[in-house]
Amino acid sequence: MLALVLTVVLVLSGTLPAVLRPVLRRRGVIDVPNARSSHARPAVRGMGLATWIAIVVGMLLALLTGAVRVDRAVTVIVLLLACAAAVLGWAEDFRGVSVRARAGTQLLVGVVGTTALALALGQSGWWIPAGTLAIAVYINVANFMDGINGISGLHGLTVGLFYALAGQLSGQTWLTVSALVLAAAFAAFLPWNLAGGRARGPVFLGDVGSYLLGGMIAAMAAAGFLAGVYVEYLLSPLVIYLADTAFTWVRRVRAGARWYAPHRQHVYQRLTDAGLSHLGSAAVVTACTVAVGLLGFIAAQGTLATSAAAAVAGIAVVAGYLVSPTVITRRRGRAPRPRDVPDGSRS
């Protein structure tokens, strides 16, 4: 049954962009490049609708076919939380949402989702504030990190596979199925994002896609934590995204910049300024994510000494990633392009 579910998700996420692209173009859901943009041609955004539809169909099919038999309520809550985040992202793509309204809605999604998960899993309400903040934060993190082609598709695929393994090791079938659906949906979109733009213009997930990605990952992480899954399993695949966002925020605050203003000073963006292609930068992020994720799984299952060694190695990977733009720039003997400007590319 799971094979059928994943096949449907792959087909839908891989074919729907062809249907949605002309519709979104007619509705004016377009990123128009300017002097501050990272892309050179107008781009259809909002193509995360395809992955959203594929995930909804896949999750419902998993419930209907019995691919998920235990903790079905948790599966439904994860899906609804991801959909709520996607709705907000679509509103941002189509009409625009004020910063205050966006933040308030993200917190509302977080508190309602975490409350529902705590009730479904029989956990204390003391976890609700932490879950609320974690969900709202990661929705934003996924959005902030969605600035170059391929990065979000690879993140969805990578985290999905790690979470599927975590579900298997923890005996949480709902997590395995949900994570594989996420991985399949974002993997099927990658060819459109990476190659589809060569002939007819680039295709971006938009906020609907990045919010969907962040919301579903955060929902699975919160549910997994409340269900007793090792925190190392859940946190390690997210460390690079979290470190990039936190490091960039600290740098901007120390430089006296308006930390809340749009910019493109993330590590992955500085890698493109240092000369890497979008795919090259996304590959660096993904490779580091895989390395830290594997080390997290080793830390969770190893002895005290093994866990400590894995933690030290993970810190080294994160540190290496954070300084990588500076290292590459120095080795190439070139000055980075100074581009403290709003993002213009959405993967």
Results as ranks from 00 to 15, higher is better:
L2A: 04
L4E: 02
L10S: 14
V11P: 13
L12K: 09
G14C: 12
P17F: 15
V29T: 06
I30N: 13
V32F: 02
S38H: 12
H39L: 00
R41M: 10
P42R: 03
R45N: 01
M47L: 15
L49S: 07
L49K: 02
T51P: 05
W52T: 06
V57A: 09
A62N: 06
A67R: 03
R69I: 07
V70N: 11
I77V: 14
V78Y: 03
L81P: 06
C83R: 05
W90H: 05
A91P: 03
D93P: 01
G96D: 01
G104P: 07
Q106G: 07
L108S: 11
G110H: 00
V111L: 12
V111E: 01
G113C: 09
T115R: 00
Q123L: 06
G125E: 06
W126C: 12
W127Y: 14
I128T: 05
G131V: 09
N143V: 05
G150K: 07
S152Y: 09
L154T: 03
L154A: 12
H155F: 11
Y163A: 01
L165Y: 14
L165V: 15
Q168E: 14
Q168V: 12
G171E: 05
W174V: 02
V177N: 07
S178R: 01
A179D: 14
F186Q: 15
A188E: 10
F189E: 00
F189S: 06
F189P: 03
P191S: 00
G197M: 05
R200K: 08
G201L: 13
G201K: 00
P202Q: 00
P202M: 00
G209P: 00
S210N: 12
Y211P: 11
M216P: 02
A218N: 10
A222L: 04
G228E: 01
V229P: 03
V229S: 09
Y230V: 04
E232L: 14
P237T: 05
L238M: 15
V239H: 00
L242N: 00
A243D: 08
W249P: 11
V250G: 00
G256H: 08
H263P: 13
Q265F: 14
D273Q: 14
D273M: 10
S277H: 01
T286H: 09
T289W: 02
A291M: 06
G302M: 15
G302F: 09
L304Y: 06
L304A: 14
A305D: 13
A308Q: 09
V318A: 07
Y321C: 11
S324C: 10
P325N: 03
I328C: 09
R330H: 10
R332F: 08
G333I: 02
P336T: 10
R339M: 04
R339W: 11
G344P: 09
